[in-house]
Design a protein around this nucleic acid. Structure first.
Lengths: 223, 223
DNA sequence: GATTGTTGGATTGTTGAACGATTCTACGAT
DNA sequence: ATCGTAGAATCGTTCAACAATCCAACAATC
């Protein structure tokens, strides 16, 4: 059954524009294509061997995900989040993740596990001095929180918010070190949740957001 | 200053694809183009006098807004929300609007007014027996609630959620009557907020969502 | 010297046509 | 009645072309 669903998903993923978009997204989030960079239709299209029209379709897809920004008659650029963008992002996260976290006692155990697991794994790795995946673990933790809501639309939107934040980290030159700082916070939140202190967990989360936002905005201002 | 910003906004809206998308969006939300309808590239492009490539770009914009759905090699269709879609939508709204409402005491008076005004106006019109704009008033009320968060990204996402719900109403053949039923609820929520009973207002909002979701899902099931 | 035209080159916006790939429809075979 | 197949319709993608727009460099003016 699972193999059938997988096969169907593969079949549906055929579009060239989609594949081009996926590749570009990876390049951007890896940092190969820096925020602010302009993506020339001719250059990229030539390098990837796709026509301008198809490439423009890929650009649209990434614009939807807020990874690229489109300026009329000027082209598309890798998004370069400003301080105001970061404030907007955290305002959204505060509402969404705070609201989702308050559902803790009403959701299935599986969904709660999706919150605990990333923190547990990151903690285990950190004990061994391995901080390589703390970044994605931190994101997985917050994805888990959003997942408590049980809405694919909400989770998808948050993926976009997270991607945008990754770009902000990059501008602030704080990709990995950033998440590392806030691992203890995640641990504390999980502990509070396990103790049934949901409102306290929400408060901790809010403080985390305050600190993270202030830190990030400060570094962006210095740029 | 405001006129300059306005002028800039006008200038930036030049794209043909954007204009086509705006026209189509209006047609869909007005009900001229029914949910489930397939939009032929050739037919629409011919009628509007734009090329297929440009039209496809417009389709992409509307797909981003969840007004259209794209099926590979089959074309684009006006979205036809299912019961599962409606559940997903309300799960998202519960988290977002509930989370935003809890900010009531921390936001500017202007933002609180944006919540009160639509209810006041709708109530005034209802007294005169005028129910013509209760639909948009209801949406304005909920837009105001989301606006409490102060995040344009969150507000934009909710506009997409609302547009999708409008399509669900249309499938359920409940465009205007629907909102009418829930006007008293909005009133009660505003009263509670004015009394400082924020948590009770959130509870009321949750009950509103429960009732609305159940009603809508029930009608969709009957289809 | 700084600001304001002007010009030419580069890039994007849009169109039209073309062809392979996919889906849909209708017809006929079993 | 079910299944398979041929043909029509439509989409996916590419290419080429031209108009519209932007940009950088240079000239003109104060």
């Amino acid at each position: 059954m699972s193999t059938l669903a997988q096969g169907k998903a593969d079949l549906e993923r055929a579009s060239t524009a989609q594949k081009v978009a996926d590749m570009l997204r990876e390049r951007v989030l890896d940092g190969e294509l820096e925020p602010g960079l302009r993506l020339s239709e001719e250059a990229i299209g030539g390098a990837l061997g796709v026509s301008r029209n198809t490439l423009r379709e890929a650009f649209r897809l990434l614009t939807r995900d807020r990874i690229l920004v489109h300026e009329h008659s000027r082209g598309v650029f890798v998004r370069r989040p400003t301080g105001d963008d970061v404030r907007d992002l955290y305002a959204a996260r505060r509402v969404i993740e705070g609201g989702a976290l308050r559902l803790w006692n009403d959701v299935s155990e599986a969904r709660r596990e999706a919150v605990r697991t990333p923190v547990r794994q990151a903690a285990a790795r950190a004990e061994k001095g391995d901080f390589s995946k703390t970044g994605s673990a931190n994101i997985q933790f917050h994805r888990g929180i959003v997942g408590l809501a049980g809405s694919t639309r909400l989770s998808d939107e948050c993926d976009r918010l997270f991607a945008e934040l990754m770009l902000a980290f990059r501008v602030a030159q704080e990709v990995e070190a950033f998440h590392q700082t806030y691992l203890p916070w995640n641990r504390r939140i999980v502990d509070l949740l396990n103790d049934g202190a949901v409102e306290q967990a929400v408060t901790q989360l809010d403080e985390y957001f305050d600190a993270a936002e202030q830190d990030l905005v400060g570094r962006l201002r210095a740029e």
